[in-house]
Nucleic acid binder design. Structure first.
Length: 593
RNA sequence: GGGGUAGUAGUUCAACUGGAUAGAAUGACGGAUUUCGGCUCCGUUGGUUGGGGGUUCGAAUCCUCCCUACCUCACCA
């Protein structure tokens, strides 16, 4: 479609150059609204600013010109300032004959000139299991990575694992006190759950101790800071920082349990990473960068020894970079990580951070600091910010146990898929393992589509009780339509060696064709905006258009050979576009369902 | 208090980034089809786009002031 706009736009520029001696580049084509005749529309108002004529007159002028000079346009009509063109059947036929043989239609190739982009997502803490919020993060990050790849970029998917800090020490202390030497293997529990349970236990004991101290007459602040169990955790953190052997070995042991658990969850979600970064490995580099920044006078040191940056001239405030005791903060680590990645990867041309919008300010500051430090690549960093996932009774709070666990949710989705499929009596002819595969595909498809179809920056309301619909604007509906289309294609024995020449299109067919042709610009647009929700919208619209088309024509039984071939071509391209679009969202499509 | 994001049918979401009469799904009601594939299709119903003002041929979209919700402004990560 864009190609077409571009060609017509060029024609018009030439025309205006010759006739009015004005060079204009603002020929803004768009799809015609379906209530009006025509396929594409030129809005002529912008032109009137440069050429003072009645819109009717100038529209007629342009219309007549294009109809004579371009074989792509077969007719036009004018409604106030909108000039609607009808695209000729010949042009559609030409395009269809071309793209039916081009399986990579719309995708860009990855070659030696491709740019490398790091997409960071997930970024878990190692003291608790993944939850619904992580799922949104993972799905977004993974999908954006796929979109960037479809745009011809080399993508490195990475996660930064927050493996150090007081929260991990809490789990460690708790396990030492109450663990009785148990292990996940012994109790047959997923490692991340196992460690997470000890974190929860810690918080419980901690609260009990606070209450006890307050009852004894201490202030709340005193109680919070002097609780014995907390002191133990703090002690453990400082032992960790000086590298005490036993602590490090416990830390390693428990982290390994957690990673094993994470791996299971990632596998279930169908998500992989190309590399991992650990905060424990980059925070030292961060400190070095701070030192350099002080020498360059980008940062300054306060009397108590803490290090800051002054961003008041940018409309922000002062930001802490190093505590007075010299230890690092979040920002320190992130500076280190960013620099580390560019060091590791000299050809790197951009990074995407998939992190919740509660950290918008943090990333604004991070990018600004990197720029002030003189890193030219700071401009190519992007924060993919997304909204929180809310439950019907409010925000998820892990401290209050009000969370939706990732594993449980995934299992629930698969079970729901199973129940519904059984109730509808589908899948009767399939083997047990085929069926189980399908339940996974459908359940996950529902979950992924449900989350990705929403604009990332908006919050999502998730009602676990209502679960997820399997009809309407949903993943399974798309998967089902795909399976039905594949069935049609299996039943056709048409070959396309000889191109089609002269069918006429009805309006359902042209609507479908136009939508099919939007696919290439869909990819480039969404890569700019990094928005899988655009793709989800495209997909659903495509499925609806196909169903409407399918309902009103007989595809395989059509007598006229040319028309039949054309319809099968449309069916095939539809299948292809559905599969590719789903691929960009990480949704599998079944051949049979 | 400063900064940020959002507010669209009863509900969940769209609106090609300033274009025509703001669209789907879901719910309710009515109809078509019973065809390769059953979850298909077509209607009806439902809106002061949070509110006021402004910018222009034209605003859900841009500016401004209010209202509401959430986030953030930590020597937490």
């Amino acid at each position: 479609m864009k190609e077409l706009y571009h060609k017509l736009s060029k024609e018009l520029s030439k025309y205006f150059q010759n006739k009015y001696n004005i060079s204009l580049n603002l020929f803004d084509f768009q799809l015609t609204r379906k209530e009006f005749d025509g396929d594409i529309t030129l809005v002529v108002y912008p032109i009137l600013k440069y050429i003072k004529l009645n819109p009717q007159v100038i529209s007629k002028d342009i219309g007549e010109y294009l109809i004579n000079s371009s074989s792509m346009i077969s007719s036009y009509n004018i409604i106030s300032g909108f000039l609607n063109f009808t695209i000729s059947n010949n042009y559609y036929i030409k395009i269809l004959n071309e793209i039916i043989h081009n399986d990579d239609y719309g995708l860009k190739k990855i070659d030696n000139n491709s740019k490398t982009i790091i997409v960071e997502f997930s970024s878990p803490n190692t003291n608790k299991p993944l939850h619904l919020g992580h799922i949104r993060n993972n799905l977004l990050g993974d999908s954006v990575a796929k979109i960037l790849e479809a745009n011809g970029n080399k993508v490195v998917k990475t996660q930064i694992i927050n493996d150090r800090g007081i929260h991990i020490c809490k789990s460690m202390v708790s396990w030492e006190l109450y663990g009785n030497g148990d292990t996940p293997e012994k109790l047959n529990i997923k490692g991340d759950k196992f460690v997470g349970d000890f974190y929860v236990l810690f918080e419980k004991k901690y609260r009990l101790e606070i209450n006890r101290l307050i009852k004894k007459g201490h202030s709340e602040e005193y109680a919070k800071n002097k609780s014995p169990i907390l002191l133990k955790a703090k002690e453990m953190l400082s032992k960790w920082e000086i590298g005490e052997k036993e602590v490090i070995s416990l830390w390693n042991k428990m982290n390994k349990w957690v990673y094993k658990g994470f791996d299971i969850t990632y596998k279930k979600l169908g998500i992989t990473f190309d590399s991992n970064y650990y905060e424990s490995m980059t925070y030292l580099l961060g400190k070095k960068i701070i030192e350099k920044g002080i020498n360059k006078n980008v940062f300054f040191r306060k009397d108590d020894g803490s290090v800051w940056i002054d961003l008041k001239s940018e409309g922000l405030d002062e930001k802490l970079l190093l505590r007075s005791d010299g230890t690092s903060v979040y920002m320190t680590q992130d500076l280190g990580t960013a620099v580390q990645r560019y060091n590791d990867n000299p050809s790197l041309s951009g990074m995407v951070y998939t992190v919740g919008n509660e950290q918008d300010y943090h990333f604004k500051v991070l990018f600004l600091i990197l720029k002030k430090l003189g890193f030219v690549w700071a401009d190519s960093l992007h924060h993919l910010s997304y909204g929180m996932v809310d439950l019907p009774d409010g925000k998820m709070k892990s401290r209050e146990g009000n969370i939706v666990d990732a594993d449980e949710l995934i299992n629930k989705m698969k079970n729901t898929a199973k129940e519904i499929s059984k109730k509808l009596g589908k899948l009767d002819g399939l083997s047990v393992s085929e069926k189980n595969n399908l339940y996974d595909t459908i359940g996950l498809g529902a979950l992924k589509y449900y989350i990705l179809k929403v604009d990332p920056k908006k919050r999502i309301l998730f009602d676990p009780e209502k679960s997820i619909d399997f009809s309407g604007n949903t993943g399974p509906f798309i998967q089902y339509t795909y399976a039905r289309i594949r069935s049609i294609i299996r039943n056709s024995s048409e070959n396309f060696d000889k191109p089609i020449t002269k069918p006429n299109f009805n309006f359902r067919e042209t609507n479908l064709i136009k939508h099919l042709l939007l696919f290439p610009e869909l990819i480039t647009q969404s890569s700019k905006l990094l928005s899988p929700s655009l793709i989800a919208n495209y997909l659903y619209e495509l499925v609806k258009l196909f169903n409407s088309f399918y309902q009103n024509v007989n595809i395989l039984g059509e007598k006229n050979e040319q028309t039949r071939k054309m319809r099968i071509i449309l069916t095939k391209i539809t299948a292809r576009n559905i599969k590719k679009s789903c691929g960009l969202l990480g949704i599998k499509v079944p051949e049979k369902m």
